[in-house]
Structures are given as structure tokens and as C-alpha cells.
């Protein structure tokens, strides 16, 4: 167990860097390889603050994710979304890790819709804590936008950590700054096909694809992420006001990641 943990911690630096671990975007997003920059699904606070402007209902959500079936590589979150006149406000808390190493986050976001487009901003207070080394906190800002070009075509963009916050001053280590652009093509109510590019300043650009198909209350999902290569499968199930999502991601070198999230929608 320990050797595996050690191996993973060395191998996985680039994998963690893409902010999936520290910024878990929910099981819905995981099922489509995180091609969710155009989604207004109640986790906009982690996906794209701009999409808060498109949010239709207030909701509360919670989720859990385990990476590579290794103890300690867990993320949990809880989010509250509140619809306001032309958009929504969202508050969320999330935590990754265990007593040896952890990242905790308190976030708040605001999105506003102007006609076919919406803009939003999210503020995160992030705290890193390493057993025996103490802790360090900083503020990171995300901005995002979403536009409905036609009922069939959505386009979204986002900048994570636009203020280029640092995790530590010595050595000079930045919290990841990531630019994202994505489109979602929705030829029918049942079908969504997404393509997205994520560029972390310090790593090769990732090209991602996601496909989602809805049959009544059930959604089936699959996705593919390049650089590093991993793929995902997932499903979502709606029952009355509840939504349950599950996703399995598989990375050839590191193994499987499981995600689950639950929503409860409050009618406005």
C-alpha cells in the first residue's frame, strides 16, 4: 500500500496539477471527461462561474470522489445555489486529502445573464496543510462566460486563477492557471456532444471530448481526455427533485477514479 502511494505521489504530479483533485467538478462532469464548461448544472461554482447566469433552479448538492482507489486521495464538497433575478449566487466548501496532506477550500460565486450570454466570477479561499509543516492560505479568482449561440450550440470559456496566486513563495510555486474554451452541440434534447480545450500554463494543452445521451430519467455519459490520457463512463438518474450522478474514470498508468454526487433541487 505504502509503495503504491509513494509511486502514485511521484507519478501523479502532472495529473493532480490539472486541478481535478483540488477542484472536483462533480460526478456529472467527471462522466464526460470534464467537458462541462458549457453546463449550468448546479456546480457552476467549480465548473464555470458564468454558467450560474443560466441556472434555472436553486439547489443544494454534495459529492465525493476517490482517486485511483487509494486511501486519502479523497475529495468531498457541499454547495448551495440560490437563484436571484438575473442569475445566481453560489457558496461551496470542499476538501481534499487526509491528516497528512490536505487542501481545503471555501468558495463563493456570482453569475449574471445578459440576453444570450452570461458572465460570472468565483472567489476561492484555499488552504494547504501538510502534517509537520504547517499551513498556508491564499485567494484565487476564476472568471467565466457562457453563451447560447442557438438552441443547438453553446460556447463557454473560463480562466481559473486569473490572479495567479501562489501556493508558496519559496520555491516559487503557483496555483495552476488554466484557460478553458469549450463548445457543446445539442442536436436534440437527448443528445449533447462536447469538445473542450484546457491549457494549464505549465503543461501541454488537453483536448477533451464528452458525449451524453438522455433516455427518460437516465443519462448515459462517456468522455475522453488527452494529455494525460484517461477516459470516463458515467450515468445520472433523476427522481423527482433528486439527481444522482456516478462516474468512473480510468487512467492507464494510475488506475480508476470513482465519483458520486447528489443534488436536491428547490423550486423557485
Amino acid at each position: 500500500m505504502f509503495t503504491r502511494l509513494l509511486a502514485i505521489s511521484f507519478l501523479s504530479i502532472p495529473y493532480f496539477s490539472d486541478a481535478q483533485v483540488i477542484s472536483f467538478q462533480g460526478a456529472h462532469s467527471a462522466g464526460i471527461a470534464h467537458t462541462s464548461v458549457t453546463y449550468a448544472d448546479g456546480l457552476s461554482i467549480y465548473n464555470n462561474a458564468g454558467s450560474l447566469g443560466f441556472l434555472e433552479k436553486s439547489s443544494i448538492a454534495t459529492g465525493y470522489q476517490n482517486h485511483y482507489e487509494v486511501e486519502g486521495l479523497n475529495t468531498v464538497f457541499a454547495v448551495i445555489n440560490n437563484r436571484i433575478k438575473t442569475g445566481a449566487i453560489s457558496i461551496g466548501v470542499s476538501a481534499f486529502g487526509d491528516e497528512l496532506f490536505s487542501i481545503s477550500r471555501v468558495s463563493t460565486g456570482l453569475g449574471n445573464r445578459f440576453g444570450i450570454a452570461a458572465l460570472g466570477v468565483t472567489l476561492h479561499y484555499i488552504q494547504y496543510r501538510i502534517e509537520g509543516f504547517g499551513s498556508h492560505g491564499f485567494i484565487s479568482v476564476d472568471v467565466g462566460g457562457l453563451a447560447e449561440l442557438s438552441p443547438l450550440l453553446f460556447i463557454g470559456g473560463r480562466i481559473k486563477n486569473i490572479n495567479q496566486a501562489k501556493v508558496s513563495k519559496f520555491p516559487d510555486e503557483y496555483y495552476p492557471t488554466i484557460l478553458t474554451a469549450g463548445i457543446s452541440y445539442r442536436p436534440t434534447d437527448q443528445l449533447r456532444f462536447n469538445t473542450q480545450i484546457d491549457k494549464d500554463l505549465e503543461f501541454p494543452a488537453k483536448l477533451k471530448f464528452g458525449l451524453e445521451y438522455k433516455i427518460n430519467a437516465l443519462s448515459l455519459r462517456t468522455g475522453l481526455n488527452t494529455q494525460p490520457l484517461w477516459f470516463s463512463f458515467g450515468f445520472g438518474f433523476i427522481h423527482k427533485k433528486f439527481i444522482l450522478d456516478y462516474a468512473l474514470q480510468n487512467n492507464y498508468l494510475l488506475g480508476r477514479t470513482h465519483s458520486i454526487s447528489i443534488f436536491y433541487q428547490i423550486k423557485n
Binding site: 442536436p187 436534440t188 437527448q190 443528445l191 456532444f193 458525449l211 445521451y213 462517456t222
Partner: peptide, 12 residues
């Protein structure tokens, strides 16, 4: 293999 709409087919 699923024909997800008249013009869109997918396979896994």
C-alpha cells in the same frame, strides 16, 4: 451501437 438521432450515430 446507438443511433442517437436520425443523423447521429455512436459506438462504444
Amino acid at each position: 451501437i446507438a443511433s442517437l438521432s436520425h443523423s447521429f450515430d455512436a459506438i462504444i
